[in-house]
């Protein structure tokens, strides 16, 4: 009996792998949670990457990604077939990240207190690298994180999708339901602003 159940689970899993996102959503709407599980497996890394790029912190990114999937599952019956599932998930995740950012702003003072702690968790020291280099590199990455975090959300989501999720311009355009030219324009502006912010922050630090 256990063998049969295991084989059935494997067969179901293989069947789900063959299905398109939209078909999985249809199954999930018909109260098949395993189908939604396959959607989560497919997109969890990308959604987590998006949340990490938008928020800059692991714990918040994990929470936001989880909340995004929960929200998607709760509202799966409202999914319109005219958009891609990936676009729908990305929009939910972006909205979740923006909500988190708004909450952060409202309690920004207490949040800034543990910024350094978050940075210290991120970098793993290699014995081959000197402490000076580690400190310099850590400082540089901290500046990048702060600069990306300070970008307007519409620019930040584009640069995060490009750099973290490595999506093509067309994929970003499809996901955000924007013209291709708008995506390129936003990315160009984001990079330029980032360059300026990095230069300004580094000058301030020095």
């Amino acid at each position: 009996m256990a063998d049969f159940e295991a084989k059935l689970a494997v067969a179901t899993s293989l069947m789900f792998k063959e299905l398109a996102d939209e078909q999985l959503v249809e199954l999930a709407v018909r109260d098949d949670p395993e189908a939604f599980g396959e959607i989560v497996r497919r997109w969890e890394r990308k959604i987590f990457a998006l949340c990490f790029g938008m928020l800059g912190r692991e714990d918040e990114a994990r929470d936001a990604a989880q909340e995004a999937f929960i929200s998607a599952y709760r509202n799966i019956s409202r999914f319109r077939g005219d958009a891609k599932v990936s676009s729908w998930l990305h929009r939910i995740a972006v909205n979740q990240c923006l909500t988190v950012k708004r909450r952060q702003k409202s309690r920004s003072e207490e949040y800034l207190g543990d910024e350094d702690e978050a940075e210290s968790r991120v970098f793993v020291a290699s014995p081959a690298v000197s402490p000076k280099n580690i400190a310099e590199k850590g400082e540089r990455l901290k500046l990048v994180r702060q600069a990306v975090g300070a970008l307007p959300s519409e620019l930040r989501e584009v640069i995060v999708m490009k750099e973290f999720e490595e999506m093509t311009f067309q994929e970003i355009a499809d996901t955000l339901e924007l013209p291709l030219s708008t995506v390129k324009s936003r990315l160009y502006t984001a990079l330029k602003q980032l360059k300026l912010r990095l230069e300004r922050i580094s000058v301030e630090v020095v």
Partner: peptide, 13 residues
Amino acid sequence: TSVAVKEWRAEAF
């Protein structure tokens, strides 16, 4: 600038 963001991704993410 892109390399700086990629470096952040590689180190942190």
